[in-house]
Design a protein around this nucleic acid. Structure first.
Lengths: 219, 219
DNA sequence: ACCTGAACACCGTTCAAGT
DNA sequence: ACCTGAACACCGTTCAAGT
């Protein structure tokens, strides 16, 4: 007999959905059991009935948003890997908090499915059995590394400073480095201003794929 | 006129050194300002006089241990990159908490120096100017991705369960997966048992380096 | 300038009590 | 079986007070 929306039964799904909403708005530090129970109009203990702890909640939320990255588009193995990788990149771009998590969740369900999909395409590429594990791992580790880096960038760009502003300040930091001690970074600083994260990410994917096909013997 | 070792002046270096000790023994969750001030026989506020907050402390500690990874061994560019990468791998292996941090510290001093060193070798390899940024970034991102993964593995292996035990349980999880839905992982599970993390890490480095030299045109 | 340590605000988690 | 919400233990950080 209350006024607001009555709580017609909690569920793991509702909790995870609410957690994702909070994470998208206020990031990982904003996800507290108090904020979550307020949003769900319940007590903290009720959440613990469905979820073991905060770590499990973060894992479930990451798994949830990552699911949408699991596309099956593309015609060639190479293209399928590219599209899968881009899907993960874009998901992390939209949910930076997931980028922090994905790197620390080894055998999470969705990560396993991503690994499986990469491995299947590696096989389709004709990579011999004994090299497939190494090849697929290299691709996955690269993808996770970029995801974590992007999450870090997004975090330092939260609030007042925009993402471009952060990149700009990094660029001028790089330019200001001593050219004798940091010749490479100093030289490359100008490219940082005009570069496209996504393009660079894909360039890395192509590099690894090129290495994989090369290691199979020239075709 | 006390009994124990008198506190002859705190310093940023002493604080960071103590933090590294605590992190090595009890991990990131063990590093609290209370534990740190107890070890340094001082008050929490004293630490804040030298360090802005916990984030800066973690960054400084990571920077400190990573410094030892900055070797300059090797004769060929390829070998220099390999040895640098292995140094980082081994450092993260010895200080798993640093693996969690390194992925979230974009323009940290030591990370910049690592990037610089990679870039110089990329240049020495003869990679044209416009591709150097992408090539060096691919290598760095891969290295950071592996570091984060290893840190995650070490964390889930803390306490009673050894690292091998974790790998063993992952292997049997993989073997237990449905062979129709996960043909690749199911097939590769046996290799997981006998594989060497370090070897696989280096195989990935070689893969990327092969791709880089391939993209320069056949030599 | 640098240190002390109590105090503040806040957090994850538990649990006796309800339905 | 599931929910409530107060209570517990603990944390990062601050700050008036000391030297």
């Amino acid at each position: 007999m209350g006024t607001g929306t009555r709580n017609t039964g909690l569920s793991r799904e509702r909790i995870v959905a609410a957690a994702v909403e909070i994470l998208d708005v206020s990031g990982e530090s904003g996800l507290t059991f108090r904020a979550l129970s307020a949003k769900l109009r319940t007590g903290a203990g009720a959440i613990y009935w469905h979820v073991a702890n905060k770590g499990e909640l973060l894992a479930a939320a990451t798994d949830f948003v990552l699911l949408s990255a699991l596309t099956d588009e593309g015609t060639t193995p190479h293209e399928r890997i590219r599209l899968l990788a881009v899907g993960i990149f874009d998901t992390v771009d939209a949910h930076p908090w997931a980028g922090e998590q994905i790197a620390r969740l080894p055998s999470q369900r969705t990560t396993l499915r991503i690994f499986e999909r990469i491995g299947q395409q590696i096989q389709a590429l004709g990579v011999p059995r004994e090299s497939r594990f190494d090849s697929a791992s290299a691709l996955l580790n690269y993808i996770l590394g970029v995801a974590a880096q992007n999450a870090a960038l997004a975090r330092s760009a939260s609030g007042e400073t925009s993402r471009d502003a952060v990149l700009e300040s990094v660029a001028s930091l790089w330019e200001g480095l001593d050219g004798d001690e940091y010749p490479f970074i100093h030289d490359v600083a100008t490219q940082l201003r005009s570069h496209d994260d996504r393009e660079q990410f894909l360039a890395g994917i192509d590099l690894i794929l090129a290495g994989i096909s090369l290691s199979m013997g020239t075709k």
